[in-house]
Amino acid sequence: TLFEALYDYEARTEDDLSFHKGEKFQILNSSEGDWWEVRSLTTGETGYIPSPYLA
């Protein structure tokens, strides 16, 4: 399933992933509550992002 970022986000820890509004992601793991592990389709990087920032 693909999701798109609604807002920009700046990583706060080394496990987080910074991203920009409009960036698209593949969800790798959504079992961690509000923090999902994703792969950016723009950069190929993986990390955790806050799920409320996605649509």
Rank of each mutant, 00 (worst) to 15 (best):
T13C: 15
K24W: 15
N29Q: 06
W36N: 00
Y48A: 02
R12S: 10
L54R: 05
F25S: 00
S18K: 05
G47P: 00
R39W: 03
D8L: 03
L41D: 11
K24S: 04
Y48D: 00
L28A: 01
D34K: 11
Y7D: 07
F3N: 09
R12P: 09
H20S: 10
F19H: 03
L17K: 01
L28H: 00
S31N: 08
Y7M: 07
E32G: 12
S31K: 08
S30A: 12
L54K: 06
S51V: 07
L41T: 05
L41F: 05
Y7Q: 12
A5Q: 02
A11I: 03
T42I: 08
S18A: 06
D15N: 14
T13W: 13
K21R: 09
D16L: 11
P52S: 15
T42P: 00
N29T: 06
D16P: 02
V38P: 00
F25H: 00
G47V: 03
V38H: 00
F3I: 05
Y48T: 05
G47H: 05
Y48V: 07
E32N: 13
L6A: 07
A5K: 02
E10T: 10
E32A: 11
L41S: 02
S18M: 05
D15M: 13
S40F: 03
G22C: 05
E10V: 12
L2R: 04
A55H: 11
P52F: 15
F3W: 14
T43L: 00
L28R: 14
S40L: 05
S51T: 06
P52V: 15
A11N: 04
A5G: 01
D34R: 04
D15T: 13
D8P: 03
L2M: 07
E14M: 10
Y53P: 08
F19W: 02
L54P: 10
T46F: 06
E10L: 09
D15P: 04
A11K: 07
Y48P: 00
W35D: 02
K24H: 07
D8Q: 03
V38C: 04
F19I: 07
E14G: 12
S31G: 10
F25V: 01
E32L: 13
E37L: 15
Y9G: 01
L17V: 15
F25W: 01
N29F: 04
E23G: 15
E45I: 09
W36I: 07
W36H: 00
T1W: 13
S30D: 12
Y7R: 06
H20T: 10
P52C: 15
F25I: 03
T43A: 00
R12E: 09
V38F: 15
